[in-house]
Computed example of a mutant assay.
Amino acid sequence: MTIAAERPIKTTADTPASTETKTFRFGELFSGPGGLGLAAKLASRPGYEIVHQWATDYDADTCRTYAQNICNDPDDKSVVHHDIRTLDYEVLKQLGGIDGLAFGFPCNDFSLVGERKGFDGKFGPLYTYGVRALEEFKPDWFLAENVGGIRADGGVALKRIFSDMIAAGYRIYPHYYRFEQYGVPQARHRMIVIGIKKELKVEFKVPSPKPYADRDVSAKTALKDIPESATNQEPTKQSKNVIERLEYIPAGGNAWHAAIPEHLQIKTKTKLSSIYKRLHPEKPAYTVTGSGGGGTHIYHWSEPRALTNRERARLQTFPDNYIFHGSKESVRKQIGMAVPVEGARVIFEALLDSFAGVDYDSVEPSLAYLIP
């Protein structure tokens, strides 16, 4: 069976009839607000494209955000609001077959922050729903994403996950991506696995960060010139104490800075570096998170305030016309849980180049040593 026979082929009125576009129909589990969805939609290579087929997530606001921006309708029925643990995959099959699948399964139980319950936690086993989707839908390729902290057990969890992906019928290319090296203004590090169906004569190569070495990824550049018309710019209310504390913290500093007077110091045994940490204007932002209490909102380098959600979205490389639905805290969570759009786009375009047989600068997969 040829690759072309498995996908619809279309021609456009603006190109000669002989120009064929191979279209990968794209499905997503744990879709989030659309970081991967938008990256796939924007990925562009001559003769190849990725188009949305369906997506699903357990959070209602997230689904409306995805549908609004990827489908141009917040109530689009191809975005299914449902808990994956009770979702009947027949619902997704009725929405159409797919050629590509993404599943950025929840990472809470593998994160370096928290109790690290791994496979014994609430979220640890959720990757199995992605593997099941591979078995049922048999897409040509997949992209799976998780936090770098999943490696902290010496690779035991990853070997198990990789083994299941291979058993589902795929060659895998796992790599630990540092997105600030790929033009993203944020130090965000994620484990991403690309899988290619074994019977296809296609080899994926991890794109090299070298073409992005001169990209300005400073926080100052990322946050400049946000138009007043952009949505999701509601300010976070800061107490008088927080404002005063921030005024003692220099750019790049945090709540443990020596200059903070006694009455403004935080008395805890654990000293997380991200608490009341101010951005440095000339460096990439630190990791944007989806939740957390006081001191975790990401703080401006010169103004004594937390960033707005729109500014946080800028650090995740969402465009200013991307509309997030829900309360301010819901939007904060959505943005923090997303994959940076432009970082994911680099990977999708490398994937399209792989199918097109186009060579590109590459590096060896950093996690290949964990493949069983």
Results as ranks from 00 to 15, higher is better:
M1T: 14
I3A: 04
A4P: 11
E6G: 06
A13I: 15
S18T: 15
T23Y: 00
T23C: 00
E28M: 13
L29D: 02
S31F: 02
G32Y: 07
G34V: 03
G34E: 00
A39I: 09
L42Q: 14
S44L: 03
Q53K: 09
W54F: 14
A55W: 11
Y58N: 14
D61E: 07
D61K: 03
T62A: 04
T65I: 01
Y66I: 08
D75V: 00
D75G: 11
K77Y: 12
H81S: 10
T86H: 04
L87K: 10
D88C: 12
L95G: 04
G96L: 11
I98T: 04
I98A: 00
F103R: 07
D109H: 13
G114D: 03
K117S: 13
G118C: 10
K122F: 12
F123W: 10
Y129T: 10
Y129A: 13
V131M: 05
L134P: 07
E135I: 01
K138V: 00
A144D: 01
E145A: 04
V147F: 01
G148F: 07
I150F: 05
A152T: 14
D153P: 15
V156Y: 13
A157G: 11
A157N: 15
L158E: 02
I161W: 08
I166W: 06
A168C: 05
G169E: 05
Y170A: 04
R171E: 03
R171K: 14
E180Y: 11
G183H: 10
Q186M: 08
A187K: 15
A187W: 06
H189D: 15
V193R: 12
V193H: 07
G195E: 11
I196A: 00
K198L: 06
E203Q: 15
F204S: 12
A213H: 11
D216C: 11
S218C: 12
A219K: 08
A222C: 08
A222N: 08
K224P: 12
K224F: 08
D225V: 05
S229K: 14
S229M: 04
K237Y: 09
K237W: 11
K237A: 12
R245W: 05
Y248K: 01
K271A: 00
L279N: 00
K283W: 11
K283Y: 09
T289S: 09
G292Y: 03
G294I: 02
T296M: 07
Y299H: 05
H300L: 04
P304F: 10
N309W: 13
E311R: 09
A313K: 02
A313N: 01
Q316I: 03
P319M: 03
Y322M: 05
I323M: 02
I323N: 07
S327L: 01
E329T: 15
G336M: 07
G336S: 09
A338I: 10
V341P: 06
G343A: 03
F348Q: 02
A350L: 06
A356R: 07
A356F: 04
G357T: 09
Y360D: 02
L367K: 10
A368H: 06
A368T: 09
L370K: 07
